[in-house]
């Protein structure tokens, strides 16, 4: 059973605010039809980490935002309805400390009107430090995917977002696919440090070649596993690189922080390109 994947351009998790802020920058096409992956939503509200949460480095950003979000209930009551009314195609990113939390989130979101799909954040650059279920081995991510899949209908997309580590990505993608993921998102911010040594994740143009290498490796080893590229997408050429490597879609994160119209432009550019 295969689910229709969102795409070909999505807003990456944590880089689209609450979604609503993008309305002003949606261009002529408007915000309806925009594919948004929400910032990672947890069961309980999280205030997020201390400042500075983001630092600028050559070629990108280092971030340790700490998953600030209002918690599932508040999200369902106040953020989701606006997005659904506006016609945004919402994939909810979920993050939990335990498999039980993941299952709970999936069960409640499966009943929420308007949710297109789920994305499990199983490749956060500092998962343990952020208080999330720690993913060291492929079976860790697979167990999250399985726990979520049990609660979320198999005809709806479930994306597993993996760390772009070329030495582990093929095993990770295989395990998640077998556990029921509709597609794997490759990848996330790359584990890195702030100038003062604090743990964070590197994002932006600097990581595009790393994620691209991982997409190529997964496509070569597992041609049947649908992939989504994420890392440094900022224009048609950088999106094309992933799509040409076999990714079915791309996610745009950091580039939106630099230019909030990036996704609107990229959607238009890709639409123009395909005859």
């Amino acid at each position: 059973m295969s689910a229709q994947l969102p795409g070909p351009v999505m807003v990456a998790s944590g880089c689209g605010g609450t979604g609503r802020e993008l309305e002003a920058f949606a261009g002529a096409a408007g915000i309806a039809g925009l594919h948004l992956v929400t910032r990672s939503i947890t069961l309980d509200a999280r205030p997020g980490g201390a400042a500075p949460r983001v630092a600028e480095v050559p070629g990108g950003l280092v971030n340790a935002v700490g998953l600030p979000n209002p918690g599932l209930e508040h999200f369902l009551a106040t953020e989701l309805p606006w997005l659904v009314r506006a016609g945004v195609q919402v994939t909810v990113s979920i993050a939990g400390a335990t498999l039980g939390e993941y299952a709970d989130l999936a069960r409640r979101l499966s009943r929420a009107p308007g949710v297109v799909g789920l994305e499990v954040n199983v490749g956060a650059p500092d998962d343990a430090g952020t208080g999330l279920f720690e993913v060291r081995e492929p079976y860790h991510s697979a167990s999250v995917v399985a726990a979520v899949r049990r609660e979320f209908p198999s005809d709806r997309p479930l994306l597993a977002k993996l760390r772009p580590d070329v030495s582990r990505i093929v095993e990770g993608a295989r395990a998640c696919h077998e556990a029921g993921a509709s597609a794997v998102v490759i990848g996330n911010s790359v584990p890195a440090a702030f100038p003062d040594g604090r743990a964070g994740g590197l994002s932006g143009p600097a990581i595009a070649p790393i994620a691209l290498r991982c997409v190529a490796a997964v496509r070569a080893a597992l041609p049947d596993v649908p992939t989504v590229g994420s890392g440094g997408v900022r224009d048609l050429a950088s999106a094309r690189a992933y799509l040409d490597a076999g990714a079915l879609a791309v996610q745009v994160g950091t580039a939106l922080l630099h230019d909030p119209t990036t996704v609107a432009r990229l959607r238009a550019d890709l639409a123009e390109e395909t005859p």
Partner: peptide
């Protein structure tokens, strides 16, 4: 404020 537009949650 890394982005200024509310997208990144980087200015607590």
């Amino acid at each position: 404020t890394p982005c200024g537009t509310g997208l990144c949650h980087g200015c607590p």
